[in-house]
Amino acid sequence: MIYMDRRLFQILDHINEGIIIIDEKLNIIYWNTQMEKLTNIKQEKAINRNLYERLPSLDRNYFRNAIDSVVKKDYKYFFSSSIHKGLITDSRKVNVRVNPFKIDNSRYVLIECIDVTSQALRIEQLKKFSNELYLLNKELKEKEKEIEKLAYYDQLTGLANRTLFYNMAEKFLEEAKRNNTKLGLMFIDIDQFKRINDKYGHKVGDQVVVEVANLLEKSTRKHDIVSRYGGDEFLILLPNIKHYNNYKIIASRIAIANRRVIVSDDIQIDISLSIGVSFYPRDGETIDDLIFKADKAMYCAKNRGGNECIHYITK
């Protein structure tokens, strides 16, 4: 039996952590009052009893191995309450430290049980709070993206809207001026759109607008900007056109694209487009100039029966 001044044991009773001392045969030789509070097991019921018999929750393979290494190899162990639930008690979160010590050639093991329930609770609360902030922040960022989308993209077709068109147009125009390159602008209007709307209703009209938007996107180059200017009008920016006539390549791609819109089994609409084209620097110095000239050319096409693409010609 360990010889120790009883007064030392009494001091351990005032320590704010649970203390168990066992001998190398795993018999409990000391159990302080804090241990009584943690486990509801009285000192007299614990002393001289086997550790695992008194605390069956410790009877786990790894814990037995750990105690063995503490006794034989002087290892120290730390078991955290986050990983080990219910190691000492189910109702509290307890960190456990296991240390060896030696008195008069006898080996003992000191098991410290530190109650961290209140800290764990506070950390959980902080984590919850920080998680709420994280989710809120994520939500706000998504909303911000949505607002940006609403501000720059047409809701029906997903194409660039007027605002984005003007931003990009100014950028492309500046670039063309700086690099002495050509910038093309196509003004596109759906032929007989009013008749489609009147005959089939606005819902079908919208469907036609969406199909045209898809068709224009598919027919243009990667860096061209297709935008919905309003109603059934579209604008396309064609940066870095090498020769004025090269717009014809894109115009022919639009011409040969499938333009049959299937509304239902009974209703199929063949759409045609009137397209006018203008160019920087030949037809104007500003975007408004280019839009005006392309619009004129588009009307010219329309007056000639539609379904045509013509470029602006100075009279």
Binding site: S81, S82, Q119, I123
Partner: peptide
Amino acid sequence: FTDMDFDIIREVGNIILN
């Protein structure tokens, strides 16, 4: 990292270093 997180690393580190 919270104190609880550090405790987990302490435990794992202890086992590996031991």
